[in-house]
Amino acid sequence: MKFGVVIFPGSNCDHDAYHVISKHVGQPVSFVWHKETDLAGFDCVILPGGFSYGDYLRAGALARFSPVMRSVKEFAAAGGLVLGICNGFQILCEAGLLPGALMRNRGLHFVCEHVRVRVESTDTPFTNELRRGEVLSIPIAHAEGNYTCDDATLGELQAEDRIIFRYCDAEGRATDEANPNGSRDSIAGICNRARNVFGMMPHPERACEDLLGSADGRGVFHSLATTLAAA
């Protein structure tokens, strides 16, 4: 199985993702510059965190027009696995690969801290090695992570089991106090209808070794590896 990590101008978590795939997943991985258009041979493409195009206009708004994104859309339509982390999630929403939008945090601050998220669905290639209801400690680092969507979209996400992570407290309760950015329904991560495109604001790639305070993020990458090994 082969992983690709897309680099947009302003991406800054590309090396973290690369490190995790090569070290913890132990699979081949290569960088994909945003001007490249050939994704042949990849099984999973990661859109990493960062500040693509300096967050100009809106976070993720300009990265959507990078040449690679047309290929990412085709790749996703053909069933390829796409993981968007933080800025990658924002890009996926702007590109229309995931519904909704990520707005300025409720408290206006850039929030950089470990938060807890509850696993809401294990029925995805990104979470099938986790347990439903499990509480993970994974850091967030964003100013625009306040997920919003209209009522109809929220209803669909809920009914179709597409809310994958919710912010919660240590006991796994998705309370308003445990919601770090004001996201609707405490949403921290969602997937598309086909369940092969997944976006999350927390950074699992920054939580893969105990030295960094948590290794809970490994579950996402182990799930991916398991899925691809079985394919």
């Binding site: 206009l57 809106r58 027009f65 702007e94 519904p99 939008a101 209209d150």
Partner: peptide, 8 residues
């Protein structure tokens, strides 16, 4: 297409 995000 670009300047606004029709979702919000």
């Amino acid at each position: 297409e670009v300047l606004s995000n029709p979702v919000i």
